[in-house]
């Protein structure tokens, strides 16, 4: 079953075409990767799906709700860890988690404790968010996105700034989560996409170049290497 259906979506910022007639659908429970060079339109697409920006044209349905008419219902079942880590800086880690949990009326100690354990936030629990290191801040930012127990989770470059260990840990967390929820993930680390995603969509200059499983993408250019294949695809499009 498709949980997200995107049809002919365009987004223009003044003169810039950030999304150009993009159509794709994402299945329930899928771990879906959005791939593309800087400025390809990944964040724009995620923002539109979360109701943070309005599309210029096209239709989008999420869990059978229309993005234009039923965004309030959609907001109940999604959460996002934005590309920019965003937390309440003067609150402690714990207060941040509680604050966001309260928005979703989800403030039971168990959920919070679980998430604190999963993200190894115990040591910094009572530290103000603004004093956290970049990596810990990002962990908190992702932890916050999970506190609402979303049905659909958007992770915009979740592992940016994480050390190797934290990244691997996060991969494991994401893999575990994936059993219950649909995840849309962007990343510039191709091995990450390769490792995690069931299917990927490759965007370039706002256009959808290709959509398919990792294997399908690899075989496209007979490269057997995901990164090479991605580069060839994007280069062919730029010519």
């Amino acid at each position: 079953m498709n949980i997200i259906t995107i049809d002919n979506v365009c987004k223009n910022y003044k003169s810039k075409k950030a999304l150009d007639n993009v159509s794709l659908s994402i299945k329930q429970g899928e771990l879906f990767g959005l791939l593309g060079v800087n400025g390809a339109g990944k964040t724009t697409l995620i923002k539109i799906l979360c109701g943070l920006t309005r599309k210029t044209s096209g239709t989008i349905r999420i869990n059978n709700f229309d993005v234009d008419k039923e965004i309030d219902k959609i907001k109940e079942i999604i959460d996002i860890s934005p590309q920019e880590t965003s937390v309440a800086n003067n609150l402690t880690v714990k207060e941040n988690l509680e604050f966001f949990a309260n928005i979703y009326n989800n403030n039971d100690a168990n959920t919070i404790n679980e998430i604190v354990d999963v993200f190894n936030l115990n040591e910094v629990l009572n530290q103000r968010a603004k004093t956290l290191s970049g990596g810990y801040k990002r962990r908190l930012s992702i932890a916050i996105a999970l506190i609402s127990k979303p049905k659909i989770l958007f992770l915009d470059e979740p592992t940016l700034g994480l050390d190797v260990f934290a990244r691997r840990e996060l991969w494991n967390i994401i893999k575990k989560l994936q059993k219950n929820i649909t995840i849309i993930l962007t990343s510039h680390y191709l091995e990450e996409i390769e490792n995690l995603c069931d299917r990927v969509a490759i965007l370039s200059n706002g256009k959808l170049l290709k959509i398919g499983t990792i294997e399908e993408i690899k075989q496209l250019n007979n490269t057997q290497n995901f990164e090479d294949s991605f580069i060839k695809l994007v280069e062919a499009n730029n010519e």
Partner: peptide, 14 residues
């Protein structure tokens, strides 16, 4: 500026 509001805009807060 810290994108805190943007993040909350995607929550059910009105």
């Amino acid at each position: 500026q810290t994108f805190f509001l943007k993040r909350l805009y995607s929550s059910p807060m009105k």
